[in-house]
Write a protein that binds this DNA or RNA. Structure first.
Lengths: 105, 105
DNA sequence: TTGACATGAAACCATTTGGTTTCCTATATA
DNA sequence: TATATAGGAAACCAAATGGTTTCATGTCAA
Protein backbone atom coordinates (compact mmCIF):
# COMPACT_ATOMS: atom_id res chain seq x y z
CA UNK A 1 0.00 0.00 0.00
CA UNK A 2 1.22 3.48 -0.88
CA UNK A 3 0.81 6.34 1.56
CA UNK A 4 -1.08 9.53 0.86
CA UNK A 5 2.02 11.66 1.33
CA UNK A 6 3.66 10.00 -1.69
CA UNK A 7 0.58 10.78 -3.72
CA UNK A 8 0.64 14.46 -2.78
CA UNK A 9 4.33 14.63 -3.63
CA UNK A 10 3.72 12.94 -6.95
CA UNK A 11 1.07 15.37 -8.15
CA UNK A 12 3.05 18.42 -7.01
CA UNK A 13 5.11 18.43 -10.20
CA UNK A 14 3.63 19.84 -13.44
CA UNK A 15 5.38 17.30 -15.66
CA UNK A 16 3.93 14.47 -13.61
CA UNK A 17 0.44 15.95 -13.73
CA UNK A 18 0.79 16.18 -17.51
CA UNK A 19 1.83 12.53 -17.62
CA UNK A 20 -1.22 11.59 -15.60
CA UNK A 21 -3.43 13.39 -18.09
CA UNK A 22 -1.84 11.47 -20.93
CA UNK A 23 -1.97 7.97 -19.54
CA UNK A 24 -5.47 8.48 -18.17
CA UNK A 25 -6.53 8.65 -21.79
CA UNK A 26 -4.87 5.40 -22.80
CA UNK A 27 -1.98 3.16 -21.80
CA UNK A 28 1.34 4.41 -23.14
CA UNK A 29 4.86 3.04 -23.23
CA UNK A 30 7.68 4.95 -21.58
CA UNK A 31 8.99 5.86 -25.01
CA UNK A 32 5.66 7.28 -26.09
CA UNK A 33 5.47 9.40 -22.98
CA UNK A 34 9.03 10.61 -23.50
CA UNK A 35 8.28 11.65 -27.08
CA UNK A 36 5.76 14.17 -25.81
CA UNK A 37 8.24 16.03 -23.64
CA UNK A 38 11.39 17.96 -24.32
CA UNK A 39 13.23 15.91 -21.76
CA UNK A 40 15.47 12.84 -21.64
CA UNK A 41 14.06 9.34 -21.18
CA UNK A 42 15.75 8.81 -17.82
CA UNK A 43 14.13 11.98 -16.55
CA UNK A 44 10.71 10.70 -17.58
CA UNK A 45 11.51 7.32 -16.08
CA UNK A 46 12.24 8.99 -12.76
CA UNK A 47 8.94 10.84 -12.87
CA UNK A 48 7.18 7.58 -13.60
CA UNK A 49 8.84 6.02 -10.59
CA UNK A 50 7.52 8.81 -8.39
CA UNK A 51 4.06 8.38 -9.89
CA UNK A 52 4.20 4.67 -9.21
CA UNK A 53 5.36 5.26 -5.62
CA UNK A 54 2.35 7.53 -5.24
CA UNK A 55 0.06 4.81 -6.53
CA UNK A 56 -0.98 6.90 -9.51
CA UNK A 57 0.19 4.56 -12.25
CA UNK A 58 1.00 0.89 -12.65
CA UNK A 59 3.34 -0.77 -15.11
CA UNK A 60 2.57 -3.74 -17.34
CA UNK A 61 5.54 -5.41 -19.02
CA UNK A 62 5.18 -6.83 -22.49
CA UNK A 63 8.32 -7.93 -24.27
CA UNK A 64 10.79 -5.09 -24.20
CA UNK A 65 8.07 -2.50 -23.61
CA UNK A 66 6.50 -1.21 -20.40
CA UNK A 67 2.97 0.05 -20.60
CA UNK A 68 2.01 2.74 -18.13
CA UNK A 69 -1.53 2.62 -16.86
CA UNK A 70 -3.35 5.25 -14.85
CA UNK A 71 -4.51 4.13 -11.41
CA UNK A 72 -7.29 6.37 -10.14
CA UNK A 73 -7.74 5.26 -6.55
CA UNK A 74 -4.82 7.30 -5.22
CA UNK A 75 -6.31 10.48 -6.63
CA UNK A 76 -9.51 9.62 -4.87
CA UNK A 77 -7.63 9.82 -1.57
CA UNK A 78 -6.47 13.32 -2.38
CA UNK A 79 -9.97 14.30 -3.31
CA UNK A 80 -11.21 13.04 0.03
CA UNK A 81 -8.73 15.24 1.87
CA UNK A 82 -9.99 18.23 -0.08
CA UNK A 83 -13.56 17.24 0.65
CA UNK A 84 -12.88 18.08 4.28
CA UNK A 85 -12.87 21.71 3.24
CA UNK A 86 -15.40 21.69 0.44
CA UNK A 87 -18.14 23.09 2.62
CA UNK A 88 -16.27 26.38 2.41
CA UNK A 89 -17.15 26.81 -1.25
CA UNK A 90 -19.95 24.41 -2.02
CA UNK A 91 -22.57 23.84 0.60
CA UNK A 92 -25.20 22.43 -1.68
CA UNK A 93 -23.07 19.79 -3.37
CA UNK A 94 -21.42 18.67 -0.16
CA UNK A 95 -24.75 18.06 1.45
CA UNK A 96 -25.97 16.12 -1.56
CA UNK A 97 -22.85 14.05 -1.63
CA UNK A 98 -23.01 13.30 2.06
CA UNK A 99 -26.57 12.15 1.57
CA UNK A 100 -25.64 9.91 -1.37
CA UNK A 101 -22.79 8.32 0.51
CA UNK A 102 -25.01 7.69 3.48
CA UNK A 103 -27.50 5.90 1.25
CA UNK A 104 -24.79 3.70 -0.19
CA UNK A 105 -23.44 2.71 3.18
CA UNK B 1 -3.30 36.05 -8.71
CA UNK B 2 -1.57 32.88 -7.52
CA UNK B 3 -0.98 30.04 -9.96
CA UNK B 4 -2.21 26.51 -9.51
CA UNK B 5 1.31 25.12 -9.47
CA UNK B 6 2.09 27.06 -6.28
CA UNK B 7 -1.01 25.58 -4.72
CA UNK B 8 -0.01 22.02 -5.58
CA UNK B 9 3.46 22.68 -4.19
CA UNK B 10 2.01 24.12 -1.03
CA UNK B 11 -0.19 21.16 -0.20
CA UNK B 12 2.57 18.64 -0.98
CA UNK B 13 4.08 19.04 2.49
CA UNK B 14 2.49 17.28 5.48
CA UNK B 15 3.29 20.10 7.90
CA UNK B 16 1.56 22.57 5.62
CA UNK B 17 -1.49 20.35 5.24
CA UNK B 18 -1.66 20.14 9.02
CA UNK B 19 -1.48 23.93 9.24
CA UNK B 20 -4.33 24.21 6.76
CA UNK B 21 -6.43 21.92 8.92
CA UNK B 22 -5.75 24.11 11.96
CA UNK B 23 -6.42 27.50 10.48
CA UNK B 24 -9.48 26.25 8.62
CA UNK B 25 -10.98 25.80 12.05
CA UNK B 26 -10.25 29.31 13.23
CA UNK B 27 -7.83 32.16 12.64
CA UNK B 28 -4.54 31.65 14.48
CA UNK B 29 -1.47 33.75 15.09
CA UNK B 30 1.92 32.53 13.91
CA UNK B 31 2.88 31.88 17.50
CA UNK B 32 -0.19 29.76 18.09
CA UNK B 33 0.56 27.69 15.03
CA UNK B 34 4.18 27.28 16.09
CA UNK B 35 3.14 26.03 19.52
CA UNK B 36 1.46 23.04 17.93
CA UNK B 37 4.59 21.82 16.18
CA UNK B 38 7.95 20.59 17.35
CA UNK B 39 9.66 23.07 15.09
CA UNK B 40 11.17 26.55 15.26
CA UNK B 41 9.09 29.62 14.55
CA UNK B 42 11.09 30.62 11.46
CA UNK B 43 10.42 27.18 10.00
CA UNK B 44 6.69 27.67 10.49
CA UNK B 45 6.92 31.18 9.09
CA UNK B 46 8.49 29.76 5.94
CA UNK B 47 5.70 27.23 5.57
CA UNK B 48 3.18 30.01 5.99
CA UNK B 49 4.89 31.97 3.24
CA UNK B 50 4.55 28.97 0.91
CA UNK B 51 0.91 28.60 1.85
CA UNK B 52 0.31 32.27 1.14
CA UNK B 53 2.08 32.00 -2.22
CA UNK B 54 -0.25 29.12 -3.01
CA UNK B 55 -3.25 31.24 -2.13
CA UNK B 56 -4.23 28.93 0.71
CA UNK B 57 -4.01 31.42 3.56
CA UNK B 58 -4.10 35.16 4.00
CA UNK B 59 -2.56 37.27 6.76
CA UNK B 60 -4.28 39.95 8.78
CA UNK B 61 -2.04 42.20 10.86
CA UNK B 62 -3.17 43.45 14.21
CA UNK B 63 -0.65 45.19 16.41
CA UNK B 64 2.34 42.95 16.79
CA UNK B 65 0.38 39.85 15.83
CA UNK B 66 -0.40 38.29 12.42
CA UNK B 67 -3.56 36.31 12.13
CA UNK B 68 -3.53 33.50 9.58
CA UNK B 69 -6.79 32.85 7.82
CA UNK B 70 -7.67 29.93 5.60
CA UNK B 71 -8.54 30.81 1.99
CA UNK B 72 -10.54 28.03 0.38
CA UNK B 73 -10.69 29.07 -3.26
CA UNK B 74 -7.22 27.75 -4.11
CA UNK B 75 -8.17 24.29 -2.89
CA UNK B 76 -11.17 24.45 -5.12
CA UNK B 77 -8.83 24.73 -8.11
CA UNK B 78 -7.05 21.56 -7.06
CA UNK B 79 -10.35 19.83 -6.67
CA UNK B 80 -11.32 20.82 -10.18
CA UNK B 81 -8.17 19.27 -11.58
CA UNK B 82 -9.00 16.04 -9.79
CA UNK B 83 -12.56 16.19 -11.07
CA UNK B 84 -11.16 15.59 -14.56
CA UNK B 85 -10.50 12.04 -13.45
CA UNK B 86 -13.35 11.44 -11.06
CA UNK B 87 -15.33 9.44 -13.62
CA UNK B 88 -12.81 6.66 -13.03
CA UNK B 89 -14.07 6.00 -9.54
CA UNK B 90 -17.45 7.61 -9.40
CA UNK B 91 -19.58 6.64 -12.34
CA UNK B 92 -22.83 7.78 -10.86
CA UNK B 93 -21.69 11.29 -10.15
CA UNK B 94 -19.82 11.59 -13.43
CA UNK B 95 -22.82 10.60 -15.47
CA UNK B 96 -24.94 13.08 -13.58
CA UNK B 97 -22.34 15.74 -14.09
CA UNK B 98 -21.97 15.00 -17.78
CA UNK B 99 -25.71 15.20 -18.17
CA UNK B 100 -25.88 18.50 -16.34
CA UNK B 101 -23.07 19.97 -18.40
CA UNK B 102 -24.72 18.82 -21.60
CA UNK B 103 -27.94 20.50 -20.60
CA UNK B 104 -26.09 23.67 -19.79
CA UNK B 105 -24.27 23.76 -23.13
C1' DT C 1 10.43 54.04 29.85
C1' DT C 2 12.01 49.69 30.26
C1' DG C 3 11.47 45.14 29.41
C1' DA C 4 8.92 41.37 27.46
C1' DC C 5 6.65 39.58 23.47
C1' DA C 6 5.45 38.66 18.37
C1' DT C 7 7.43 38.59 14.37
C1' DG C 8 10.80 39.49 10.37
C1' DA C 9 15.11 38.64 8.13
C1' DA C 10 19.54 36.87 7.10
C1' DA C 11 23.04 33.45 6.99
C1' DC C 12 23.93 28.89 6.99
C1' DC C 13 23.47 23.73 6.39
C1' DA C 14 22.14 18.91 4.83
C1' DT C 15 19.12 16.54 1.98
C1' DT C 16 16.03 16.13 -1.84
C1' DT C 17 14.75 17.07 -6.45
C1' DG C 18 14.91 17.25 -11.30
C1' DG C 19 17.68 17.04 -14.71
C1' DT C 20 21.85 15.25 -17.51
C1' DT C 21 25.23 11.74 -19.82
C1' DT C 22 27.01 7.25 -20.22
C1' DC C 23 26.82 2.50 -20.30
C1' DC C 24 24.40 -2.03 -19.82
C1' DT C 25 20.77 -5.62 -20.83
C1' DA C 26 17.07 -7.75 -23.09
C1' DT C 27 14.00 -8.25 -26.93
C1' DA C 28 12.68 -7.76 -31.92
C1' DT C 29 13.71 -7.97 -36.50
C1' DA C 30 16.23 -7.75 -41.22
C1' DT D 1 23.21 -13.85 -36.49
C1' DA D 2 23.81 -8.96 -36.48
C1' DT D 3 21.64 -4.82 -35.55
C1' DA D 4 18.24 -1.72 -33.95
C1' DT D 5 15.05 -0.69 -30.28
C1' DA D 6 13.07 -0.24 -25.36
C1' DG D 7 14.30 0.35 -21.22
C1' DG D 8 17.26 0.08 -16.60
C1' DA D 9 20.95 1.86 -13.69
C1' DA D 10 24.67 4.56 -12.07
C1' DA D 11 27.25 8.70 -11.54
C1' DC D 12 27.05 13.31 -11.50
C1' DC D 13 25.33 18.25 -10.99
C1' DA D 14 22.78 22.65 -9.83
C1' DA D 15 19.03 24.37 -7.60
C1' DA D 16 15.29 24.00 -4.40
C1' DT D 17 13.61 22.51 0.11
C1' DG D 18 13.15 22.29 4.99
C1' DG D 19 15.27 23.04 8.76
C1' DT D 20 18.46 25.71 12.13
C1' DT D 21 20.61 29.84 14.89
C1' DT D 22 21.25 34.62 15.50
C1' DC D 23 19.99 39.25 15.44
C1' DA D 24 16.86 43.28 14.49
C1' DT D 25 12.35 45.68 14.91
C1' DG D 26 7.98 47.16 16.41
C1' DT D 27 4.33 46.89 19.87
C1' DC D 28 2.37 46.13 24.41
C1' DA D 29 2.35 46.56 29.31
C1' DA D 30 4.30 47.11 34.20
Amino acid sequence: MYDTQSTFKAIADPTRRAIIGMVADREMTIGEVTDRFNMSRPAIAKHLRVLRDGGLVSVRESGRERFIKFEPSALKDVEQWIEHFSHFWDDKLSKLKAAVEKDEA
